[in-house]
């Protein structure tokens, strides 16, 4: 998984990444290379830096040291470059963050029209196609508040997909959902993974990790403690800290 051909740049290349919130050292010397099409699941206890890490990749958080390169383009303070990179990266949030004053369709059309300069009919066609793909085409003209949590999260996934991103970030996409609804969102994510999307998911859904992850990254105290394919990670973790975490997760 790690040995990719020299010519193809990594989807995401993170080296020596450090981040502080004031005195709090949130990310410590993170190294992570994600190949195109690779599916990474990031897990770890709360406060371990998982969310901070993926939020650095699309610059919702500014990193303090080290480098992040997305498809060969390094993240700097250059606003234009940040926006270019953000348009290649879709993000799904724990609390969906749909725009409540717009219908689901309008939510999906805003960015393609505004950032990609698509015409209204083209954007609508795109939006309807992706709403179909996440299996909620009939919700297009409703407002987010009228949908269930699972439908809202799938709408949020469709909204991100409408920008045709090459990489998708998921920040605990099922943590705010009722247990019986989690599956419909995970199924959507699995379909996406099977289509070859590069994905970085922060999640505690270990069944999902087992099923689709190429690698599982375990973090603690701002560090990557262990990185392994799910088979090894779950059955034969190398680090004591990982074993302890997995034991607690299972109980």
């Amino acid at each position: 998984m790690n040995d990719m051909p020299e010519t193809e740049p990594a989807a995401v290349e993170i080296t020596g990444l450090n981040k502080w919130y004031g005195d709090y050292h949130a990310l410590r010397d993170i190294q992570l290379s994600v190949a195109p099409g690779e599916r990474i699941v990031i897990c770890g206890p709360s406060g371990s830096g998982k969310s901070s890490l993926i939020r650095c990749i699309n610059r919702l958080e500014r990193h303090d040291k080290g480098s992040i390169t997305v498809e060969g383009l390094e993240l700097t303070d250059d606003k234009k470059r940040i926006r270019t990179i953000r348009r290649e990266i879709g993000m799904v949030f724990q609390h969906f963050n749909l725009f409540p004053h717009m219908t689901i369709l309008e939510n999906c059309m805003l960015a393609p029209m505004s950032a990609r300069k698509l015409t209204r009919p083209k954007a609508e066609e795109l939006a309807r196609r992706f709403l179909g793909r996440v299996h909620i085409p009939e919700q297009a003209d409703k407002y987010p508040g009228q949908l269930s949590g699972g439908q809202q999260q799938r709408a949020a996934i469709a909204r991100a997909l409408c920008m045709s991103p090459r990489i998708m970030l998921f920040d605990e996409p099922t943590s705010a959902l009722d247990p019986e609804i989690i599956k419909e969102v995970l199924d959507t994510m699995i379909e996406l993974a099977n289509d070859g999307m590069t994905m970085l998911c922060v999640t505690h859904e270990m069944g999902f990790a087992r099923q689709i992850a190429d690698r599982v990254v375990f973090m603690d105290h701002g560090r990557i403690v262990e990185t392994a394919p799910p088979g090894d990670f779950f059955t034969n973790p190398r680090q004591d800290r990982t074993r302890l975490f997995l034991r607690q997760l299972l109980h």
Binding site: N58, L60, R87, H95, L110, A115, M163
Partner: peptide, 13 residues
């Protein structure tokens, strides 16, 4: 909520 602005940024706006 800050998430509204973040969602906009994440979409490249």
């Amino acid at each position: 909520p800050a998430g509204q602005t973040e969602a906009g940024y994440a979409l490249g706006l």
